[in-house]
Write a protein that binds this DNA or RNA. Structure first.
Length: 845
RNA sequence: GCCCGCGUGGUGGAAUGGUAGACACAGGAGACUUAAAAUCUCCAGGCAGCAAUGCCGUGCCGGUUCGAGUCCGGCCGCGGGUACCA
């Protein structure tokens, strides 16, 4: 008997696919198109199991769609700009470009043995000048269309390394390399005006029916639409007004202070006038720029000494404070504090001894607020105290609406819909990114580069021995003639956020060699992405930016109408996790060990390891399994089968050596099965042909539904069961051959090489990859009897098998006649009998 | 802090509001074998019981329902995101 030898089989079929170019995507009118895309990888140098899982899922969909008669586009590329390349250059020398392209080559070599149905002719990396040059062209068009602008924004500044730090590089407020206390610094930076589209980006979420509800909800909350009011508060010193934004103007009776951001013009004007205040503002500048750090930090403030008039109550004055919790980017950078009805304001008021005054009570309970703010749901009725609009008992929402109406009618404020979403800052003070194609000229100001000069390529001759952006220090790259006046000028040295690169790559795949960012006809044919697959960690930023970019590209004529939402369906898959093996060194510090060095909980020298529950595979914890090792030990089909089999795709999957071994054993069983059927007596009469074919059609039905609904693990469970049925079958050769060929087809999206081999063994026509997907015969799926569980008061007590079409009354009778039911009822007469046809009977007493 | 998600046997997990634990791993028993490996067959949530069977059981507390792992409210734990990681 021959043996299952994946190494040999897999190489052979991969060659056959590539020879016939069956995965090459060509526009055609005779088939419906299908664009399946997995989020492209960052070229770190090694593929990991997360990649294998992601690309295998996409491959299952792509191969299934190919078999169901679609013209499939399934491309692959590299998200190749980013910090790690510069970090590597600093740590080990070398050049980010060489490091990146070397990694791409390595990863492509590791990926190809997986047998993915990718059209490799469309491959590109975002660091290819052909790609980022087109990105620069997009930028210039966005600039012309008013979609990009410059403004000041804060960055993390490392005063020792004299460089801008990413949030990730700030650890406990200190620079990761220098250890210096990080400061905030203001720089002029480029921004995409995404906030202009906030309302549309929010409203369009409703149309994304094939996106996970959780992602739509996260995006909606992120955009954060709120209806409120802007109210100018008159300064008592006569020096104008302070404009506050509030979503709870109905609580204005309880207002006891105004808080402005440390970056607010009022704060800036006062800075330097008073040492205490100056020190406070400086202290605020030492905070991380992250939202999490701001929110978790202790709420602090300082009285500016300024006072404003209460907009409604004559003679009431409110102190103006600077609060470290007020964001300049949200609303107007100034709020009024109402301690009674906001917990943060209450904590602040108690800390600084500011008045706490209720604006309303709950009906029938006139207790003043103590340590807990009174914040009922906006739909709940409250009793307003002495409200200037005259309302008394009303819901908070009614109170808010009435207040806004009152202020607008009296010209004292304007109702505003605001969004939490901020404009997208794209400037990065780094080398390894797409250069922003503008020039700074003393005479002309900011001048866009001419399109014929694109791409503005990164210079290769840079060094990373000193921190900071080497483009700033480059002797010649910076110096250019102004594109407008021709006089000496300086090129912008900031590069673009890598999220820009990944916000339109899906469109570029439709025409990767076009001399413009896209080819409108190719885009019209291939867009939208029918199925997008990637990690949940991208639920907000990457997906929101891509949605914005599709709109901006549509406005600037780079995408056709109807592509505003570029991803018709989205699937977010879970991570691949593994146990962590740890020992301690003599100082008690954790030492991690690779899974291949641990057997039965022990190292080679017998030392016991501590086992820490599964976590996302990461190099630092050494809980990584290299797909390359798995493929060389068991073959790609085993790796593919395992990552799909054990967990629902949206959840994390734990990699276990035993699981991989089991997957391999199963594939061997299937291969042996094919071998046995091939050797059968072709003329002998068999037994149970009908039963086998019935099971086969059931399997076709279940697996098809499983694949279409991303229930890969459930589909695989059905395939296990059907394999067991086939193994035990005594049916004729013809029936068994049909069954094993169908089994191969149903497995082919998951284990394409093994499936091809079985297909060829059994004399199938052509390649299984292009054979039409089997269809379940409906007549074979229905059964004439049905087994119903019988509950008494919701507890299962018995089951009966009855004809499938038995009328309800007969089913009731049959249920009540059952011995176990009679015993349980013990003479009691049923009050009600619920018969759910084909499902269950519940007898209620 | 805030937003989102998840929590089911020894383990990964299955279950359109309708028999909780499919399928698989690990485990146990047996067959084959001189033996082992491989392969095959069977058993298997917990407690009690020879068994029939009974009781308990989907993180915790409460609710809706004839019926809740599933829906609702409140907690606890873990994970993702938090705008310069990708």
């Amino acid at each position: 008997m021959a043996r299952y030898t994946p190494a040999e089989i897999e190489a052979r079929w991969q060659e056959a696919w590539s020879r016939d170019e069956i995965f090459k995507a060509v526009r055609t009118a005779d088939k419906p198109k299908y664009y399946v895309l997995e989020m492209f990888p960052y070229p770190s140098g090694r593929i990991h199991m997360g990649h294998v899982r992601n690309y295998t899922m996409g491959d299952v969909i792509a191969r299934y769609k190919l078999a169901t008669g679609h013209n499939v586009l399934h491309p692959m590329g590299w998200d190749a700009f980013g910090m790690p390349a510069e970090n590597a250059a600093m740590a080990i020398g070398g050049h980010p470009k060489d490091w990146t392209y070397g990694n791409i080559k390595d990863m492509r070599d590791q990926m190809k043995p997986l047998g993915l149905s990718i059209d490799w002719s469309r491959e590109f990396a975002t660091c290819d000048p052909e790609y980022y040059g087109q990105q620069q062209a997009l930028f210039l068009d966005f600039l012309e269309a008013g979609l990009v602008y410059r403004k000041n924004a804060q960055v993390n500044w490392d005063p020792v390394d004299m460089t801008v730090l990413a949030n990730e590089q700030v650890i406990d407020g200190k620079g990761w390399r220098s250890g210096a206390e990080v400061e905030r610094r203001e720089l002029t930076q480029w921004f995409f005006k995404i906030s202009d589209m906030a309302g549309e980006l929010k409203d369009a979420l409703d149309g994304l029916e094939n996106w996970p509800a959780k992602v739509r909800l996260m995006q909606e909350n992120w955009i954060g639409e709120s209806r409120g009011i802007e109210i100018p508060f008159q300064r008592t010193d006569g020096d104008g007004t302070i404009l506050c934004y509030s979503t709870r103007p109905d609580t204005m009776r309880g207002a006891s202070f105004i808080a402005v951001s440390p970056d607010h013009p009022v704060s800036k004007a006062l800075e330097g006038s008073n040492p205490e205040l100056t020190a406070f503002i400086e202290d605020c500048r030492k905070m991380d720029t992250t939202e999490a750090a701001m929110e978790k930090a202790e709420k602090k403030g300082i009285d500016t000494g300024l006072r404003v008039k209460h907009p409604v109550y004559e003679g009431v004055e409110l102190p103006v404070w600077i609060g470290n919790f007020v964001l300049m980017d949200y609303g107007t950078g100034a709020v009024f504090g109402c301690p009674a009805h906001d917990q943060r304001d209450l904590d602040f008021a108690r800390k600084y001894d500011l008045p706490v005054r209720n604006a309303f009570y709950m009906p029938g309970d006139e207790t003043e607020v103590g340590t807990e703010a009174l914040v009922p749901a906006k739909t709940e009725k409250v009793v307003y105290i002495d409200h200037f609009t005259g309302i008394t008992e009303a819901t908070s929402q009614q109170g808010i609406d009435a207040t806004i109406d009152y202020f607008e009618a009296n010209n004292r404020g304007t109702g505003q819909t605001k969004y939490r979403l901020r404009d997208w800052g794209l400037s990065r003070q780094r080398y390894w990114g797409c250069p922003i194609p503008v020039v700074h000229c003393d005479a002309c100001g900011v001048v866009p580069e001419k399109k014929e000069n694109l791409p503005i390529e990164l210079p290769y001759d840079v060094s990373f021995d000193v921190p900071g952006n080497p483009l700033d220090r480059h002797p010649t790259w910076r110096d250019v003639a102004c594109p407008a006046c021709g006089k000496p000028a300086k090129r912008e040295t900031d590069t673009m956020d890598t999220f820009v690169d990944s916000s339109w790559y899906f469109a570029r795949f439709t025409a990767p060699d076009a001399k413009t960012p896209t080819d409108i006809e190719d885009a019209a044919y291939w867009m939208n992405v029918d199925q997008y697959i990637g990690g949940i960690e991208h639920a907000i930023l990457h997906l929101l930016y891509s949605r914005y970019f599709a709109r901006a590209m549509r406005i600037t004529g780079h995408l056709p109408q109807g592509t505003e939402e570029p991803f018709d369906a989205l699937f977010t898959q879970g991570m691949v996790t593994h146990e962590i093996y740890q020992t301690r060194d003599e100082k008690g510090r954790a030492v991690y060990h690779l899974p291949e060095d641990v057997t039965d909980g022990k190292l080679a020298d017998g030392t016991e390891v501590e086992i820490i529950p599964s976590a996302k595979m990461s190099k630092s914890k050494k809980n990584v399994v290299d797909p390359v090792n798995i493929i060389s030990a068991y073959g790609a089909d085993t790796a593919r089968w395992f990552v799909l089999s054990d967990s629902p795709p949206e959840r994390d999957v734990e990699w276990t050596a035993a699981g991989a071994e089991a997957a391999f054993k199963h594939l061997t069983r299937v291969w042996n099965l094919c071998d046995r059927i091939g050797a059968m007596d072709k003329t002998a009469k068999g037994e149970g042909d009908q039963d086998l074919l019935r099971a086969m059609h059931g399997c076709i039905h279940d697996v098809t539904i499983g694949i279409e609904s991303f229930g890969f693990n459930a589909a695989i469970a059905k395939l296990y069961a059907f394999t067991a049925t086939l193994q035990k079958s005594k049916a004729s050769h013809a029936a068994q051959r049909e069954a094993v060929m169908t089994l191969a087809q149903l497995m082919s999206p998951m284990t394409p090489h093994l499936a091809e081999d079985i297909w060829a063994h059994q004399g199938g026509d052509g390649l299984i990859a292009t054979a039409p997907w089997p269809k379940a015969d409906e007549a074979m799926l229905v059964s004439d009897t049905v087994t119903l569980p019988i509950q008494v008061n919701g507890k299962r007590r018995a089951e009966i098998t009855v004809p499938a079409d038995m009328p309800k009354e007969e089913v009731e009778k049959a249920a009540l006649a059952d011995q176990a039911v009679i015993r349980t009822l013990d003479g009691a007469s049923p009050k009600k009998i619920i018969v759910v046809p084909g499902r269950i009977v519940n007898v209620v007493v």
